[in-house]
């Protein structure tokens, strides 16, 4: 994990908050589409936050910076969504997990494995898919989400 180049350290000013910046969702997903998973890192307490945001939930500080994340981590917990929301029905049953990346950042994601093949502590790697590949019902996406990539974990 490394702090990204040309990094802004908060408090963010109004001009720092643009759709090009990973501190916003469009900027975060643009970076993800290019293969970079970017978190906000608190420079006071080192909490890593996905997606990035302007303040730290750990200590309240706005002194946050951007930090590119490792793609590997381990399963903290997992289950199977047997009856998913209608837009995801074609993927059922969906194995999902909370994953702690090697940076300590945590995120939820689908796991491309059946439930019985997953256990707490398993090593996984993040994969980034085009939205078309996942084939989620287009009605699910909001207008600004249509081009956003989807994330999924593969067992290592």
């Amino acid at each position: 994990m490394t702090d990204t180049d040309s990094t802004t350290t908060g408090p963010l000013g109004p001009d720092d908050i643009t759709a090009d910046s990973p501190f916003t969702l469009p900027g975060f997903f643009d970076a993800l589409a290019e293969g970079r998973l970017v978190a906000a890192r608190c420079t006071e307490c080192d909490t890593q936050m996905l997606p990035p945001r302007p303040a730290c939930y750990g200590c309240g500080s706005r002194a946050v910076t951007l930090s590119e994340q490792p793609r590997t981590g381990e399963v903290i917990s997992y289950t199977s969504v047997n009856r998913p929301p209608s837009a995801f029905e074609h993927l059922a049953p969906i194995t999902v997990a909370v994953v702690e990346l090697d940076s300590s950042a945590r995120l939820t994601g689908r796991v491309e494995a059946s439930l019985e093949d997953v256990a707490i502590g398993d090593r996984v790697e993040l994969r980034i898919d085009d939205p078309e590949t996942v084939d989620i019902d287009p009605d699910f996406d909001l207008s600004y989400e249509e081009e956003w990539p989807a994330h999924v974990f593969e067992l290592l």
Partner: peptide, 24 residues
């Protein structure tokens, strides 16, 4: 919304994540 809803989760699934860890 950005990462969890877009992973297809439901209420039972999110609580199952708590339950699995609790049993662990």
């Amino acid at each position: 919304r950005a990462l969890e809803q877009r992973s297809g989760i439901t209420a039972p699934a999110t609580y199952a994540l708590l339950a699995r860890r609790y049993l662990h």
